[in-house]
Computed example of a mutant assay.
Amino acid sequence: MTTVQEDASGGDPAATLAAALRRLIVMGENFRNLRARELHLGSSDVLALGHLHDGGSMAPKVLSALMGVTSGTMTAMLDRVEKAGFLRREPNPDDRRALLVRLTPAGEHAMQWLNEQFDATVRETLAGLPGMTPDELHHVLSELSGSLERRLVDESSAGHPELR
Rank of each mutant, 00 (worst) to 15 (best):
P91W: 05
E116F: 01
H138T: 14
L52N: 02
A127Y: 03
L144V: 15
R102A: 14
S71V: 09
E108H: 13
G55A: 09
A48R: 05
L49I: 05
F118P: 02
A65Y: 02
D95F: 08
R89M: 10
H109D: 11
V62G: 04
L100P: 01
E136R: 12
E149A: 13
E149T: 15
D119E: 12
L141N: 06
R88I: 05
L66S: 10
L148D: 04
R97Q: 11
V140K: 01
A84V: 02
V46P: 03
L78H: 04
R102G: 10
L141W: 06
M74R: 03
W113P: 00
P130W: 09
E136L: 08
G50D: 08
E116V: 01
N115L: 14
P60Q: 10
A120K: 12
D95N: 15
S44Q: 14
G50Y: 06
H51A: 10
T70L: 05
A98L: 13
A65G: 12
W113N: 07
V69F: 03
L99A: 13
R88Y: 00
L129W: 09
V46H: 03
L63Q: 04
E143V: 13
L114M: 12
M67P: 03
R150V: 04
L52C: 05
V46A: 12
T125I: 08
R96G: 00
N115I: 05
S145M: 03
P134M: 06
N92M: 00
N92P: 00
M58L: 07
E116Y: 03
T121R: 14
H138G: 02
V81S: 12
L144T: 09
H51M: 11
G55I: 03
